[in-house]
Nucleic acid binder design. Structure first.
Lengths: 81, 81
DNA sequence: CTGTGACTTACAGTCCGTG
DNA sequence: ACACGGACTGTAAGTCACA
């Protein structure tokens, strides 16, 4: 029942929200004030973002941090089964 | 309109949730698998927690990560004004 | 029980490239 | 536009002794 790869779940949330907005990783990185390659790592579940990065990401994606975490949470529970 | 000290806001959320459960920093640290002093730093807004720490904290506090972030978010907007 | 300063180690996050 | 690599800087993680 242990959660499987929480950061991978977070990466998927980022990717889905990004694609929903129809922008590139580079564009997102730019809006979030982060780096191109970092978004790539993040979406592939290879990085564990800090609170501030989560906030920046949420802002850049036009959603509330809580909304992002809620989706992330749903994904986590889904795979935890 | 820039957010003021997001991590301080997060610290307050942790503290309030902890006090609501009536447990000590040490007890929380123990349940979250973190260290006593780290909780202290966190509550005083001196640490910027990562996603995994947020998850551990939420679990230990008996709330969902999204709920924590929602309260954190509310606090942030309040002070951002 | 908690705050604090100092400290080491791990990894977040940037930047240079490549295919 | 993206994945992926190596190398680098900064900072979070985690622990300690002491007030």
């Amino acid at each position: 029942m242990a959660n499987r790869d929480p950061q991978q779940a977070f990466g998927e949330v980022v990717r889905q929200l990004r694609l929903k907005r129809g922008i590139s990783q580079e564009a997102l990185a730019d809006e979030a004030g982060l780096h191109r390659t970092y978004i790539s790592l993040l979406e592939r579940g290879l990085r564990n973002p800090s609170l501030t990065v989560i906030q920046q990401l949420a802002t850049a994606l036009g959603v509330r941090p809580a909304q992002m975490i809620a989706e992330f949470d749903a994904l986590c529970s889904k795979r935890a089964k």
